[in-house]
């Protein structure tokens, strides 16, 4: 399932697709290096295949907490000024980004 044969070897196209999903701008050199290094790690990870887990539930959390509820009461939070303090670009109390919709 995870590996076919003995060695996991990622396709360059897979690396490119994952980088796009992760919104990481990588150079061609980085893509190549990533392909090598991730293949080694994935190869190590593939040892999990030998563990039988058919009837085992996946862990959702490690300590046995029940849902924790509290009253939904409005309380003071960060001010608009504090929130925008670190924004690289802001205007009139808004964070400013490039247009995502075509103007035409």
């Amino acid at each position: 399932m995870i590996s076919e044969g003995h060695q996991v070897k990622l396709e360059l196209e897979t690396v490119e697709r994952i980088a796009a999903l992760a919104r990481l701008g990588l150079s061609q050199d980085e893509m190549e290096r990533m392909r090598e290094q991730l293949s080694v790690v994935l190869d190590h990870i593939s040892m999990l295949e030998e563990v039988p887990t058919e009837d085992i539930p996946p862990t959702a959390q490690v300590i046995e907490l029940q849902n924790i509820m509290r009253d939904d009461v409005v309380e003071p939070s960060l001010s608009q000024e504090q929130v925008l303090l670190n924004a690289p670009r802001s205007e009139d109390g808004f964070i400013k980004v490039k247009a995502v919709l075509d103007a035409s």
């Binding site: 897979t14 690396v15 994952i18 980088a19 999903l21 992760a22 990481l24 990588l26 980085e30 990533m34 290094q37 991730l38 790690v41 994935l42």
Partner: peptide
Amino acid sequence: KRRIMLGTY
């Protein structure tokens, strides 16, 4: 970057 890639994968 390696870990973001591994996790995204």
